[in-house]
Design a binder for these strands. Structure first.
Lengths: 183, 183
DNA sequence: GCCTATCATGAACCTGCGTTCACGATCTTG
DNA sequence: CAAGATCGTGAACGCAGGTTCATGATAGGC
């Protein structure tokens, strides 16, 4: 039997509100706040998601999906003639920038490189990133031993809660370990 | 009027226990656990420290003090003829290693570069580190624009909760941003 | 040895937060 | 439209962790 119409409506409202609240306050956003933002009672959250972890995972997976889209787009541009290293630098800057204001992205980044991730999404990002890396290495602009995991590691250790000047400085310090382009 | 003898005794026991518990479980160690480890009731903690923040700060300041000692010792060795860059690398590795097992060090590292720190200790580390940096730059082994803040920044973003292989890889990725020594 | 200021005790309190559940409302099928 | 399954409600629960306070013990000067 298909679900009731209002139930579907509520599920959407809940996901929208959860996305908004987690973006603003990170995964620490309270279930009460999410429920209030969705215009729904707490119990309704628990009808759609057994517990908080499941709700947060759903939102974070969405975000990872967007990042995967971004990476795949960069790969397409490379196939179209763009320099792979330029695309990689753009990606890193974009993710770093997003993490600063979007607490969901920050939390989502922590999922990559750790275990509990949707395998499909992880595969998508991994594959596209690997191709970009190979291309940049073929251009001689990325050190030969750099891997996908290295990027996950660096993104996870990025100082996302620091002012722009500090984030920029951090990039400057870290990039020489990846690229062969001079400082 | 000087404090009672048993009060002094208890203060020591509390600090010892707090140090131990925070080393094991980080600043998340409960007041109850600390009290139990000290063989004292919770209320006694609050007689000596108005709140948890004050107690944790006291312990963390101690740790920073030890780090300051380490840095100053490195500076002395440099004055005695050791290569400044070697001492710096040793320092970084030691702090990184300690952060992995000692949750107090990890938390203490977060204090440097942030605001609420004992100025005296911060001055001590800052001065000694600055001298080491200058010496290494004079040797041409450290990039000229590297500052004390850069080191604080990198230490703060180190992946202390990752396995040794990952921590080591992180160092490899980050060092080229500091030193002129090749990979 | 007494007496009082100082100190220790730990049960109780408070707040925040995830989670549950008995009840009422609403949608949908026949 | 009626019947029943599905869904929504929100007060209440449980738990954890920091903090307090009335009560009793102890130290140290006279």
């Amino acid at each position: 039997m298909s679900p009731r119409a209002d139930a579907v409506r509520n599920r959407t409202k809940i996901l929208d509100a959860a996305r908004e609240q987690i973006t603003l306050h990170g995964p620490d956003a309270g279930m009460d706040e999410i429920a209030a933002a969705a215009g729904v009672a707490v119990g309704t959250l628990y009808r759609h998601f057994p517990n908080k972890t499941d709700l947060v995972s759903a939102v974070l997976t969405e975000h990872l999906d967007r990042v995967a889209d971004d990476i795949e787009a960069a790969r397409e541009r490379t196939a179209g003639g763009a320099k792979a290293m330029d695309e990689i630098l753009g990606l890193v800057e974009r993710v770093l920038e997003a993490s600063a204001t979007d607490h969901a992205v920050k939390a989502a980044a922590r999922l990559l490189g750790a275990y509990p991730t949707d395998e499909l999404v992880e595969d998508r990002t991994g594959t596209a990133l690997a191709e970009l890396i190979q291309a940049a290495q073929a251009d001689g602009e990325l050190h030969d031993d750099v891997t996908v995991q290295d990027f996950y590691l660096l993104i996870n250790t990025a100082p996302t809660d620091q002012p722009p000047a500090v984030r920029s400085r951090w990039l400057t310090l870290v990039l020489p370990g990846l690229t062969t382009r001079g400082r």
